[in-house]
Nucleic acid binder design. Structure first.
Lengths: 183, 183
DNA sequence: CACTGTAGCGGACTGACGGTCCGTTTTGTT
DNA sequence: AACAAAACGGACCGTCAGTCCGCTACAGTG
């Protein structure tokens, strides 16, 4: 990797980050704007990241790597509490990176499910559910839990502070980790 | 309302419906394509529906009105079962109208939450939850249940038939309607 | 039926955007 | 210093949502 390429990659990511942080909607951040803000040609963006999705992904992954490197998620304790911690932190992360989160989930033709990271999250949660309740439809329930922390719901509930998200997530996770079949 | 306007409205809705049914992704259906398929000028589309979102909404609402007029949802029985029926029918409706559903939820700047109908559904489900569990964080839980039947999840699980959606929805709803606090 | 004001029509046009292309510049190796 | 390859920049392209305005045809009036 040539030095100028690596340097430009960082410059571009930083500039894109600033623009997404300042925006209220992902559509406000065009590739031309990123190139201009980075002081770089448009070709450089597309050569370095492939397409818009690639840029958004790179930035999102950079930030979530920072996040989870800073405070790793503990591995002990019971599955329900671990799942709750994962989801709560995801929620907070998306609150802190609103517009980037929206861009990320809207990216791969408008579906969060085609993003590479999704499968990891799904497997992780499904595993936790299966550990707590062998008979549960863990696959579907994991999708449902992840759907509850999607960026646009985070965004929707911002400015509606009457909804107690923390209590809600807690109740949801504990309900799901207890049994849905009997009684 | 002049006769030709009303006539054109129906022609356009029918043509758009055909195109969405045939497509695999909402982006494949452009406004030009709808106009051409309807044998109508582009101006007619925008005068009649305002913008793309307006057209998608009109079509989605027409179809869901048909759906729920044909088989109304019963009002009796316990809240959990009613909620389950509502969600299951929504899931099936979105399976049957995949691409239109995707277009609809992606429309109002890419968020389902700005669509008029969402508030109705949310209030309905929150009411059912509150009826079953007075202490529940009903607002958040209702959002979570609705998130579990979003079009792109429906789409994602199509072609992954290993996930038993019906059992999953049932388990999810029953879990949520039982208590998440005690035990 | 003829007349006429106007609601509605069509499609060329605009502006913005994601993505491509290719002549020019920078890098690092010998 | 010389050179090949990698990376750069920004003009350019195709597409799409949405606008504009000259034309058409509907419906109310005498």
């Amino acid at each position: 990797m040539r030095a100028d390429k690596a340097r430009n990659r960082e410059i571009v990511l930083a500039a894109a980050g600033r623009l997404f942080d300042a925006a209220n909607d992902p559509d406000e951040v065009s590739m031309d704007a990123v190139a201009a803000a980075a002081g770089v040609g448009k070709g450089t963006l597309f050569r370095g990241f492939g397409d818009r999705l690639g840029l958004v992904r790179a930035l999102y992954e950079q930030r979530s790597a920072q996040e989870f490197a800073a405070r790793p998620v503990g591995d002990d304790g019971d599955p329900a509490e671990r799942a709750l911690e994962l989801l709560t932190r995801t929620w907070r992360f998306k609150e802190r990176h609103r517009v980037l989160g929206l861009a990320f989930e809207r990216a791969g033709h408008g579906s969060p499910y085609t993003n590479a990271g999704y499968d990891w999250w799904h497997a992780e949660l499904a595993g936790l559910i299966a550990a707590a309740r062998a008979d549960a439809p863990a696959g579907f329930l994991a999708h449902a839990l992840l759907a509850a922390v999607r960026s646009d719901l985070v965004e929707h509930l911002r400015g509606r502070p009457d909804t107690d998200v923390h209590a809600g997530l807690q109740d949801l996770v504990r309900s799901v980790f207890r049994d849905g079949k009997q009684r």
